[in-house]
């Protein structure tokens, strides 16, 4: 018996696995990654995304982007590209534009739906050097780049009509090749009708 709305729908909206027609959203809390994602599929294939991610409340990355379903069968595979901004406080501050490309997979088994997200994030910033000479202020900007590989996986569990609970682990590699400690999160997701 089908009692979850998105199980009744063809091409249901999904912000965790990606893709789908209609509106979906989720909010996640965890250690050390928190965030939300709002997604709206405006056609069978295409949708837009608005999201923000935070790490320990010291590093913020708001983004907007486009997503598309690449394959829809027993498995759904979607791809997304996003652009945004990365700002980080602390001993190594950062402040610059960012882009991200990612692939998401999910496969439903009744109420349960394992999912996987793989991505690559890039950001630019400048180290500014100001030298006061007798005659002028010399300003030199040196470009700095940051590359983060993202990887998350988890299990979404249908809990009530349009709602899912998702448990996930986060295994990104922030500012490669620096070492990153894995994290874990719990998310509450809404999967609305078209």
């Amino acid at each position: 018996m089908k009692f979850l709305l998105f199980e009744l729908l063809n091409n249901p909206a999904d912000s965790i696995g990606g893709g789908g027609k209609g509106t979906a959203a989720h909010v996640q809390v965890g250690t050390a990654w928190q965030g939300f994602r709002l997604q709206h599929g405006f056609s069978d294939t295409w949708g837009w995304i608005v999201e923000a991610q935070s790490v320990s409340w010291e590093r913020w990355q708001p983004s907007i982007g486009l997503s598309a379903i690449w394959y829809e069968g027993s498995v759904r595979i979607t791809g997304s590209i996003l652009g945004g901004w990365l700002t980080q406080s602390g001993p190594y501050p950062w402040n610059g534009p960012s882009t991200e490309g990612r692939i998401q997979l999910s496969k439903p088994f009744g109420r349960l739906r394992p999912w996987l997200l793989l991505g690559s994030k890039h950001s630019l910033g400048n180290l500014r050097t100001e030298i006061q000479t007798q005659d002028e202020l010399l300003i030199e900007d040196t470009l700095q780049t940051e590359w983060t590989m993202t990887g998350s996986m988890g299990l979404a569990i249908g809990i009530h009509k349009e709602w899912e609970l998702s448990l996930g682990i986060d295994m990104p590699w922030v500012n490669y090749p620096n070492i990153t400690i894995p994290g874990a999160h719990v998310a509450i997701a809404y999967r609305g009708a078209p």
Binding site: R59, P91, V174
Partner: peptide, 17 residues
């Protein structure tokens, strides 16, 4: 030395050392 130590911490510990 704060910066040196922070650079040796795995992410995300360096954000809030």
């Amino acid at each position: 030395s704060q910066r040196y130590l922070t650079s040796r911490f795995p992410f995300p510990f360096g954000l809030t050392p």
